[in-house]
Amino acid sequence: MERKYEFSWDLLGDIEEGRPHMGNTTRVEVYRLMQFTFRDIIEKHVGWEKTNEIFYDAGQLAGKEFYFHMLEKTDDLNQFINQLQDVLKELGMGILRIEEADMEKGELTLTMSEDLDCSGLPETGYEICTYDEGFISALLESFAGIPFIVKEIDCWCTGDRTCRFSAKAKNEGNQSEK
C-alpha cells in the first residue's frame, strides 16, 4: 500500500518557527472539532466498530511516539507515573491518577479527569475515549515492555465525572479481548 503520511514526530512541524505569534496552544474545541468530524466521516465510511479500532490504533501510535519523545526512560513505575502526570497536566491533556497498580499481575486502574477528549461532552450512554485507550496502552507497553489492553469502564459520556480505565497486561489468555 502506497503511504504518503506515515507518521513521524517531524510531521508536527516547527511550531515555534511556524506560529511565532499564535504560539503552540489552541482551544479544546478545536481539538474536539477535528476529532469528532474525523470520527463522523470515518464512521460513515467504515462503521462504528471499525472507527473505534482506528481510533484505538491511532491512540496507540500517538502513545508510542509520545513516550519516546516526551518522557524519560525509567524502570520505576512511580517515576514513570509522576512524569506522565506532569506532562499530561502541562500539556492540558487531563489529570491522570492511579487507583490501583499491580505490575506483577499486570493490572492497573487509572482515571483521567478533565479529559481532553470527553470531559463536558453530552451523555451518549456509551464510552467514547477509544483514542485514550490506545494511547494509554502504548504508554504502558513502552514502559513495561509488554502489551496492555486498556478498556474504558467509566466515561463522562456515560454519566460519570471522570474517565476510568482498566489496563491488563496482554497474554495468550486475554489476547482475544481486544
Binding site: N78, R97, I98, E99, E100, A101, T109, T111, S113, E123, G125, D154, W156, T158, G159, D160, R161, T162, R164
Partner: peptide, 27 residues
C-alpha cells in the same frame, strides 16, 4: 450511571488514588 453516581465514582477514584499514593510514599 448518572451525575450523582459519577460524582461518587469520582470521589472513590480520588480516595483510591490517595490510597495508592500513600502506599507509594510508604514505600
Amino acid at each position: 450511571k448518572g451525575y450523582v453516581l459519577g460524582s461518587l465514582k469520582s470521589l472513590q477514584a480520588s480516595l483510591r488514588n490517595l490510597t495508592w499514593k500513600t502506599k507509594a510514599i510508604a514505600a
